[in-house]
Design a protein around this nucleic acid. Structure first.
Lengths: 146, 146
DNA sequence: GTAATTCCTAGAGGTGGCTCGAGGTCAATT
DNA sequence: AATTGACCTCGAGCCACCTCTAGGAATTAC
Protein backbone atom coordinates (compact mmCIF):
# COMPACT_ATOMS: atom_id res chain seq x y z
CA UNK A 1 0.00 0.00 0.00
CA UNK A 2 1.34 3.42 -0.94
CA UNK A 3 0.08 6.98 -0.47
CA UNK A 4 0.15 10.28 -2.33
CA UNK A 5 1.36 13.41 -0.59
CA UNK A 6 -2.20 14.66 0.01
CA UNK A 7 -3.19 11.45 1.78
CA UNK A 8 -0.09 11.54 3.97
CA UNK A 9 -0.77 15.17 4.81
CA UNK A 10 -4.23 14.24 6.06
CA UNK A 11 -2.96 11.22 7.98
CA UNK A 12 -0.34 13.25 9.84
CA UNK A 13 -2.31 16.46 10.09
CA UNK A 14 0.26 18.43 8.14
CA UNK A 15 -0.12 20.51 5.00
CA UNK A 16 1.20 19.42 1.63
CA UNK A 17 3.44 22.49 1.77
CA UNK A 18 4.98 21.34 5.00
CA UNK A 19 5.71 17.87 3.65
CA UNK A 20 7.33 19.28 0.54
CA UNK A 21 9.30 21.67 2.73
CA UNK A 22 10.55 18.75 4.83
CA UNK A 23 11.58 16.98 1.64
CA UNK A 24 13.45 20.08 0.49
CA UNK A 25 15.22 20.15 3.85
CA UNK A 26 16.41 16.59 3.40
CA UNK A 27 14.13 14.97 5.94
CA UNK A 28 12.59 12.51 3.50
CA UNK A 29 15.35 11.19 1.21
CA UNK A 30 13.66 7.78 1.31
CA UNK A 31 10.48 8.83 -0.48
CA UNK A 32 10.46 7.50 -4.05
CA UNK A 33 8.96 9.08 -7.15
CA UNK A 34 6.97 7.97 -10.15
CA UNK A 35 8.74 8.50 -13.51
CA UNK A 36 6.84 11.77 -13.78
CA UNK A 37 8.14 13.00 -10.43
CA UNK A 38 5.16 12.45 -8.13
CA UNK A 39 6.13 11.36 -4.61
CA UNK A 40 5.08 7.85 -3.58
CA UNK A 41 4.96 7.23 0.17
CA UNK A 42 5.35 3.67 1.45
CA UNK A 43 3.98 2.54 4.79
CA UNK A 44 7.50 2.70 6.21
CA UNK A 45 7.87 6.28 4.99
CA UNK A 46 4.77 7.28 6.92
CA UNK A 47 6.22 5.58 10.00
CA UNK A 48 9.47 7.50 9.54
CA UNK A 49 7.47 10.72 9.29
CA UNK A 50 5.80 9.86 12.59
CA UNK A 51 9.24 9.60 14.19
CA UNK A 52 10.11 12.95 12.63
CA UNK A 53 6.96 14.41 14.19
CA UNK A 54 7.94 12.88 17.50
CA UNK A 55 11.40 14.44 17.36
CA UNK A 56 9.86 17.72 16.30
CA UNK A 57 7.47 17.76 19.24
CA UNK A 58 10.42 16.98 21.49
CA UNK A 59 11.70 20.38 20.41
CA UNK A 60 14.40 19.17 18.02
CA UNK A 61 15.14 21.56 15.15
CA UNK A 62 14.63 20.21 11.63
CA UNK A 63 18.34 20.55 10.88
CA UNK A 64 19.18 18.09 13.63
CA UNK A 65 16.40 15.74 12.60
CA UNK A 66 18.07 15.66 9.20
CA UNK A 67 21.29 14.44 10.77
CA UNK A 68 19.34 11.62 12.40
CA UNK A 69 17.78 10.69 9.06
CA UNK A 70 21.26 10.64 7.55
CA UNK A 71 22.49 8.35 10.32
CA UNK A 72 19.58 6.03 9.65
CA UNK A 73 20.67 5.58 6.05
CA UNK A 74 24.24 4.85 7.13
CA UNK A 75 23.23 1.60 8.78
CA UNK A 76 24.55 -0.11 11.90
CA UNK A 77 27.67 2.04 12.25
CA UNK A 78 25.50 4.90 13.52
CA UNK A 79 23.53 2.87 16.08
CA UNK A 80 25.40 4.39 19.01
CA UNK A 81 24.80 7.95 17.83
CA UNK A 82 21.13 7.27 17.33
CA UNK A 83 20.84 5.67 20.75
CA UNK A 84 22.63 8.60 22.37
CA UNK A 85 20.35 11.00 20.54
CA UNK A 86 17.19 9.38 21.89
CA UNK A 87 18.65 9.26 25.40
CA UNK A 88 19.31 12.97 25.10
CA UNK A 89 15.81 13.60 23.74
CA UNK A 90 14.40 11.73 26.70
CA UNK A 91 16.21 14.07 29.06
CA UNK A 92 15.07 17.11 27.10
CA UNK A 93 11.42 16.04 27.11
CA UNK A 94 11.54 15.24 30.81
CA UNK A 95 12.98 18.68 31.47
CA UNK A 96 10.22 20.21 29.36
CA UNK A 97 7.61 18.34 31.35
CA UNK A 98 9.07 19.65 34.58
CA UNK A 99 9.03 23.15 33.16
CA UNK A 100 5.40 22.74 32.14
CA UNK A 101 4.57 21.45 35.59
CA UNK A 102 5.98 24.61 37.15
CA UNK A 103 4.16 26.71 34.59
CA UNK A 104 0.94 24.91 35.43
CA UNK A 105 1.40 25.59 39.12
CA UNK A 106 1.68 29.31 38.49
CA UNK A 107 -1.34 29.18 36.19
CA UNK A 108 -3.33 27.29 38.81
CA UNK A 109 -2.42 29.94 41.34
CA UNK A 110 -3.54 32.66 38.92
CA UNK A 111 -6.82 30.85 38.28
CA UNK A 112 -7.47 30.86 41.99
CA UNK A 113 -6.32 34.47 42.26
CA UNK A 114 -8.76 35.69 39.62
CA UNK A 115 -11.55 33.42 40.75
CA UNK A 116 -11.49 34.91 44.24
CA UNK A 117 -11.00 38.41 42.84
CA UNK A 118 -14.09 37.91 40.70
CA UNK A 119 -16.06 36.69 43.70
CA UNK A 120 -15.00 39.76 45.64
CA UNK A 121 -15.63 42.00 42.66
CA UNK A 122 -12.19 43.52 42.92
CA UNK A 123 -8.54 42.59 42.79
CA UNK A 124 -7.96 44.59 45.97
CA UNK A 125 -8.98 41.57 47.98
CA UNK A 126 -5.46 40.30 47.26
CA UNK A 127 -3.60 43.58 47.46
CA UNK A 128 -4.75 44.22 51.01
CA UNK A 129 -3.41 40.90 52.25
CA UNK A 130 0.24 39.94 52.35
CA UNK A 131 1.80 37.21 50.25
CA UNK A 132 1.77 34.60 53.00
CA UNK A 133 -1.93 35.09 53.55
CA UNK A 134 -2.50 34.47 49.86
CA UNK A 135 -0.44 31.31 49.85
CA UNK A 136 -2.40 30.08 52.86
CA UNK A 137 -5.71 30.82 51.26
CA UNK A 138 -4.61 29.11 48.09
CA UNK A 139 -3.74 25.93 49.94
CA UNK A 140 -7.20 25.92 51.50
CA UNK A 141 -8.91 26.60 48.21
CA UNK A 142 -6.92 23.75 46.66
CA UNK A 143 -7.98 21.39 49.43
CA UNK A 144 -11.61 22.44 49.05
CA UNK A 145 -11.53 21.35 45.47
CA UNK A 146 -10.44 17.77 46.18
CA UNK B 1 14.94 47.81 45.96
CA UNK B 2 15.18 48.38 42.22
CA UNK B 3 17.18 46.76 39.44
CA UNK B 4 18.88 47.79 36.20
CA UNK B 5 18.12 45.95 32.99
CA UNK B 6 21.31 43.89 33.17
CA UNK B 7 20.48 42.62 36.64
CA UNK B 8 16.96 41.68 35.62
CA UNK B 9 18.33 39.89 32.56
CA UNK B 10 20.55 37.76 34.78
CA UNK B 11 17.75 37.10 37.25
CA UNK B 12 15.37 35.88 34.58
CA UNK B 13 17.97 34.28 32.35
CA UNK B 14 17.14 36.53 29.41
CA UNK B 15 19.36 38.84 27.40
CA UNK B 16 19.22 42.61 27.66
CA UNK B 17 18.21 42.60 23.99
CA UNK B 18 15.23 40.42 24.74
CA UNK B 19 14.06 42.64 27.60
CA UNK B 20 14.34 45.75 25.46
CA UNK B 21 12.51 43.93 22.69
CA UNK B 22 9.70 43.06 25.10
CA UNK B 23 9.51 46.69 26.12
CA UNK B 24 9.34 47.74 22.47
CA UNK B 25 6.50 45.24 21.98
CA UNK B 26 4.50 46.82 24.79
CA UNK B 27 4.97 44.03 27.34
CA UNK B 28 6.48 46.27 29.98
CA UNK B 29 4.61 49.59 30.03
CA UNK B 30 4.97 49.65 33.82
CA UNK B 31 8.77 50.00 33.89
CA UNK B 32 9.80 53.52 34.86
CA UNK B 33 12.84 55.50 33.76
CA UNK B 34 15.43 57.77 35.30
CA UNK B 35 15.45 61.34 33.94
CA UNK B 36 18.23 60.24 31.59
CA UNK B 37 16.11 57.38 30.21
CA UNK B 38 17.58 54.35 31.97
CA UNK B 39 14.99 51.71 32.86
CA UNK B 40 14.37 51.16 36.57
CA UNK B 41 12.78 47.81 37.47
CA UNK B 42 10.82 47.54 40.69
CA UNK B 43 10.33 44.26 42.53
CA UNK B 44 6.77 44.13 41.19
CA UNK B 45 8.04 44.62 37.64
CA UNK B 46 10.26 41.58 38.00
CA UNK B 47 7.25 39.63 39.29
CA UNK B 48 5.23 40.75 36.28
CA UNK B 49 8.05 39.60 34.02
CA UNK B 50 7.92 36.21 35.70
CA UNK B 51 4.24 35.98 34.78
CA UNK B 52 5.14 36.98 31.23
CA UNK B 53 7.71 34.17 31.19
CA UNK B 54 5.08 31.81 32.51
CA UNK B 55 2.64 32.75 29.77
CA UNK B 56 5.41 32.49 27.21
CA UNK B 57 6.33 28.99 28.30
CA UNK B 58 2.67 28.08 28.11
CA UNK B 59 3.05 28.77 24.40
CA UNK B 60 1.28 32.12 24.31
CA UNK B 61 2.53 34.49 21.58
CA UNK B 62 3.93 37.85 22.75
CA UNK B 63 1.12 39.69 20.98
CA UNK B 64 -1.47 38.01 23.18
CA UNK B 65 0.60 38.52 26.29
CA UNK B 66 0.48 42.22 25.48
CA UNK B 67 -3.31 42.13 25.54
CA UNK B 68 -3.15 40.60 28.99
CA UNK B 69 -0.78 43.33 30.18
CA UNK B 70 -3.22 45.91 28.81
CA UNK B 71 -6.09 44.26 30.65
CA UNK B 72 -4.05 44.40 33.85
CA UNK B 73 -3.72 48.16 33.58
CA UNK B 74 -7.46 48.52 33.00
CA UNK B 75 -8.28 47.36 36.49
CA UNK B 76 -11.19 45.31 37.82
CA UNK B 77 -13.34 45.59 34.69
CA UNK B 78 -11.07 43.07 32.96
CA UNK B 79 -11.02 40.50 35.77
CA UNK B 80 -13.29 38.12 33.90
CA UNK B 81 -11.17 38.25 30.75
CA UNK B 82 -8.01 37.61 32.72
CA UNK B 83 -9.61 34.72 34.56
CA UNK B 84 -10.86 33.20 31.32
CA UNK B 85 -7.42 33.58 29.82
CA UNK B 86 -5.74 31.63 32.61
CA UNK B 87 -8.41 28.92 32.43
CA UNK B 88 -7.68 28.61 28.73
CA UNK B 89 -3.92 28.56 29.38
CA UNK B 90 -4.46 25.77 31.88
CA UNK B 91 -6.18 23.68 29.22
CA UNK B 92 -3.45 24.43 26.68
CA UNK B 93 -0.66 23.45 29.06
CA UNK B 94 -2.46 20.27 30.07
CA UNK B 95 -2.84 19.36 26.40
CA UNK B 96 0.85 20.05 25.87
CA UNK B 97 1.73 17.78 28.77
CA UNK B 98 -0.35 15.00 27.27
CA UNK B 99 1.39 15.50 23.94
CA UNK B 100 4.77 15.33 25.64
CA UNK B 101 3.75 12.17 27.45
CA UNK B 102 2.98 10.50 24.12
CA UNK B 103 6.24 11.80 22.69
CA UNK B 104 8.10 10.38 25.67
CA UNK B 105 6.52 6.97 25.16
CA UNK B 106 7.77 6.83 21.59
CA UNK B 107 11.21 8.02 22.69
CA UNK B 108 11.29 5.37 25.42
CA UNK B 109 10.46 2.75 22.82
CA UNK B 110 13.23 4.03 20.59
CA UNK B 111 15.70 3.97 23.47
CA UNK B 112 14.86 0.34 24.00
CA UNK B 113 15.00 -0.33 20.27
CA UNK B 114 18.50 1.08 19.92
CA UNK B 115 19.73 -0.40 23.17
CA UNK B 116 18.84 -3.90 22.04
CA UNK B 117 20.14 -3.21 18.53
CA UNK B 118 23.46 -2.10 20.03
CA UNK B 119 23.61 -5.24 22.17
CA UNK B 120 22.99 -7.37 19.07
CA UNK B 121 25.43 -5.29 17.05
CA UNK B 122 22.86 -4.75 14.32
CA UNK B 123 19.47 -3.26 13.75
CA UNK B 124 18.45 -6.43 11.92
CA UNK B 125 17.54 -7.96 15.25
CA UNK B 126 14.34 -5.90 14.96
CA UNK B 127 13.79 -6.20 11.25
CA UNK B 128 13.65 -9.99 11.36
CA UNK B 129 10.87 -9.98 13.95
CA UNK B 130 7.37 -8.70 13.36
CA UNK B 131 5.87 -5.72 15.09
CA UNK B 132 3.95 -7.72 17.69
CA UNK B 133 7.12 -9.54 18.73
CA UNK B 134 8.75 -6.19 19.25
CA UNK B 135 5.91 -4.88 21.34
CA UNK B 136 6.06 -8.00 23.48
CA UNK B 137 9.78 -7.73 23.96
CA UNK B 138 9.44 -4.09 24.84
CA UNK B 139 6.93 -4.85 27.56
CA UNK B 140 9.32 -7.41 29.05
CA UNK B 141 12.25 -5.05 28.83
CA UNK B 142 10.17 -2.37 30.55
CA UNK B 143 9.25 -4.77 33.34
CA UNK B 144 12.89 -5.82 33.74
CA UNK B 145 13.79 -2.25 34.43
CA UNK B 146 11.39 -1.81 37.35
C1' DG C 1 40.00 63.55 34.16
C1' DT C 2 40.01 59.65 31.58
C1' DA C 3 38.94 54.96 30.87
C1' DA C 4 35.76 51.30 31.42
C1' DT C 5 31.26 49.87 31.95
C1' DT C 6 26.54 50.10 31.46
C1' DC C 7 22.93 52.16 29.81
C1' DC C 8 20.05 54.25 25.63
C1' DT C 9 17.62 54.31 20.57
C1' DA C 10 16.78 53.12 15.85
C1' DG C 11 16.95 50.10 12.67
C1' DA C 12 19.03 46.25 10.14
C1' DG C 13 19.84 41.28 10.09
C1' DG C 14 19.03 36.53 11.11
C1' DT C 15 16.80 31.95 12.16
C1' DG C 16 13.22 28.64 12.14
C1' DG C 17 9.40 26.99 10.16
C1' DC C 18 6.41 27.28 7.31
C1' DT C 19 3.00 29.23 3.41
C1' DC C 20 1.88 30.49 -0.88
C1' DG C 21 1.65 31.98 -5.94
C1' DA C 22 2.96 31.27 -10.63
C1' DG C 23 3.44 28.37 -14.09
C1' DG C 24 3.55 23.76 -15.56
C1' DT C 25 2.70 18.29 -15.91
C1' DC C 26 -0.12 14.35 -15.77
C1' DA C 27 -4.12 11.17 -15.36
C1' DA C 28 -8.84 10.56 -15.19
C1' DT C 29 -13.59 12.12 -16.39
C1' DT C 30 -17.25 14.19 -19.48
C1' DA D 1 -10.66 17.28 -27.01
C1' DA D 2 -11.33 19.79 -23.01
C1' DT D 3 -11.85 20.17 -18.19
C1' DT D 4 -10.86 18.99 -13.53
C1' DG D 5 -8.00 18.07 -9.84
C1' DA D 6 -3.93 16.50 -7.77
C1' DC D 7 0.59 16.55 -8.36
C1' DC D 8 5.32 19.16 -9.47
C1' DT D 9 9.33 23.10 -8.89
C1' DC D 10 11.13 27.44 -7.79
C1' DG D 11 11.39 31.21 -5.37
C1' DA D 12 9.31 34.84 -2.76
C1' DG D 13 6.91 36.16 1.39
C1' DC D 14 5.65 35.93 6.07
C1' DC D 15 5.49 35.56 11.15
C1' DA D 16 7.52 35.07 15.61
C1' DC D 17 11.26 36.06 18.21
C1' DC D 18 15.01 37.61 18.88
C1' DT D 19 20.11 39.50 18.08
C1' DC D 20 23.16 42.73 16.98
C1' DT D 21 25.47 47.14 15.30
C1' DA D 22 26.21 52.00 15.28
C1' DG D 23 26.36 55.97 17.53
C1' DG D 24 25.76 58.27 21.72
C1' DA D 25 25.07 59.45 26.88
C1' DA D 26 25.68 58.69 31.75
C1' DT D 27 27.89 56.61 35.72
C1' DT D 28 31.71 54.43 38.35
C1' DA D 29 36.52 53.23 39.33
C1' DC D 30 41.08 54.58 39.45
Amino acid sequence: MTYAIGEVAKMLNLTIYTLRYYDKEGLMPFVERTPSGTRVFKESDVEALKIIECLKSSGMPLKNIRYFIEWCSQGDCSLQQRYDMFIERKAVVEAQMNELKKTLEIIDYKCWYYKTALEAGTENVHKTKDAEDCAQQQVHSMQDRQ
